[in-house]
């Protein structure tokens, strides 16, 4: 009887401590990373910034052309 009480208390203690550990765990978006779908988001963001900077390159070239046009005058 004494043994079972001690064992059950121990078991309870383990359970509580396990739970306490669980709540200490900071929740992160692990699932999103586990199934790999985050790579889609990262790729899309990278493509967006690539296209935007490519557009800035086009503007830069346009400005350079205008400058050369004025310099030739």
């Amino acid at each position: 009887m004494k043994k079972t009480i001690i064992l059950s208390i121990l078991f309870l203690f383990v359970l509580v401590s396990a739970h306490a550990q669980d709540s200490n765990q900071v929740e992160m978006a692990d699932a999103l990373y586990a199934n790999g779908k985050i790579y889609v988001v990262a790729t899309v963001a990278a493509i967006v910034i690539t296209i935007l900077t490519a557009y800035v390159i086009l503007i830069d070239r346009k400005v350079t052309k205008l400058e050369e046009k004025i310099n030739q005058k």
Binding site: I38, A42, T43, A46, V48, I49, T53, I57
Partner: peptide
């Protein structure tokens, strides 16, 4: 451009 693309990919 290289730094920005790197940021937008590895930032996630």
């Amino acid at each position: 451009i290289f730094c920005l693309v790197y940021t937008c990919y590895y930032g996630f």
